[in-house]
C-alpha cells in the first residue's frame, strides 16, 4: 500500500453562491491548490493542500473552508 493511498486528504468546501472570484485565496495559497474556473474558485490539486487555512483566513466572502 503506497503512502499516498494512506494519507487522508483534507476537505475543501467552497460555497459557489458566495464566491465572487477575487482570487485572493489562490494568490495566498502556498502550495498552489486552487484555481479560478469561470467566476468561481475550484480545487485543482487537493493532494498538495497542507491545511494551513490561509484561504479561509483571507477570503472576504465566507466562501471557502478547509476541514480536516
Amino acid at each position: 500500500m503506497s503512502e499516498a493511498a494512506v494519507k487522508k486528504l483534507p476537505r475543501i468546501v467552497i460555497n459557489e453562491k458566495f464566491c465572487k472570484g477575487c482570487s485572493i485565496c489562490i494568490d495566498f495559497c502556498p502550495t498552489d491548490v486552487l484555481e479560478l474556473k469561470g467566476n468561481c474558485v475550484a480545487v485543482k490539486n487537493l493532494e498538495a493542500c497542507t491545511r494551513c487555512q490561509l484561504c479561509d483566513l483571507r477570503c472576504p466572502d465566507f466562501a471557502i473552508q478547509v476541514f480536516d
Binding site: 453562491k17 458566495f18 465572487k20 472570484g21 477575487c22 482570487s23 485572493i24 472576504p60 466572502d61 465566507f62 466562501a63
Partner: peptide, 9 residues
C-alpha cells in the same frame, strides 16, 4: 449573504 462588497474588498 452574500454581502454586497465587491470582489476582493
Amino acid at each position: 449573504l452574500p454581502h454586497i462588497w465587491c470582489p476582493g474588498c
